[in-house]
Amino acid sequence: MMFYGSEDVTTVLAEISAHDPRPYAALAAFELIRPVPVVDLAAVASDPSLFDPNRRTMTGSVEFIRSFSEDLSRPVARDGQEHLTYVPTQVLTEYLRYLSPLSVDGITFRSAHNGGTNYVLFTGPEGCVDPGRETPQAILRLQQGTEHVVER
């Protein structure tokens, strides 16, 4: 399991609306309990200059990451084939979570629906706690009083 969230309510509603036809959405705000290192695909750097001898070898890698980030931020057609569209994202996520030499707890990326910032954190319900119920494995704490249902 993973935690999916967005930086702002507008992006949350755009994401939910793309996947759920109901006229309402349940929302809540969470805060980080500790620093959480993430791979930031929402802010991929520009290509290094080909004229910079110390960085020009990075051009291909940066272009791959930018292209992957753009693919990640494209809308997925609900045509029965969406499970295939998600495969590259799932492979990268599983690699970063379990096999990468990087020690990261998630990924940030741009919303396909409004360009806002989304977060995937590598934690399930055990990582999300109520105030005063923090545990060593928890990374997110519910901000009390932020839970509500909104019409879309």
Rank of each mutant, 00 (worst) to 15 (best):
R78L: 14
A18T: 07
S49Y: 05
D20K: 00
D20A: 07
G116T: 08
F3W: 15
G106L: 00
T85N: 08
R74E: 15
A42V: 05
T85I: 07
G5S: 14
D40S: 11
Y95Q: 02
R78V: 11
Q81G: 06
T11D: 11
S73E: 07
R110V: 10
A18L: 08
E134M: 01
P35F: 05
M2K: 09
E94V: 00
H113D: 11
R97T: 09
R97G: 07
S61F: 07
Y24R: 13
A26Y: 14
R97I: 04
L13D: 05
V91P: 02
Q81R: 13
P136S: 04
R74A: 13
L50D: 13
F122W: 05
G60I: 03
I65H: 02
Y98F: 11
S69Q: 01
I33V: 15
L96K: 04
G5A: 14
A18C: 05
T108I: 01
D8L: 01
M2A: 11
L140R: 03
V36C: 14
I33E: 14
Y98A: 12
Y98H: 13
D8A: 09
V120M: 11
H19L: 06
E7W: 05
R141T: 10
S73A: 15
G116W: 08
Q143P: 00
F3K: 04
P53I: 08
G116D: 10
D105I: 00
V12I: 08
G106I: 00
D8E: 15
T123R: 08
L99V: 06
P75W: 10
R133L: 10
A112G: 15
P131F: 01
A18K: 01
Q90G: 07
R133D: 12
D52Q: 10
V87F: 03
A26W: 12
I139P: 01
M1Q: 12
S49M: 08
S103V: 11
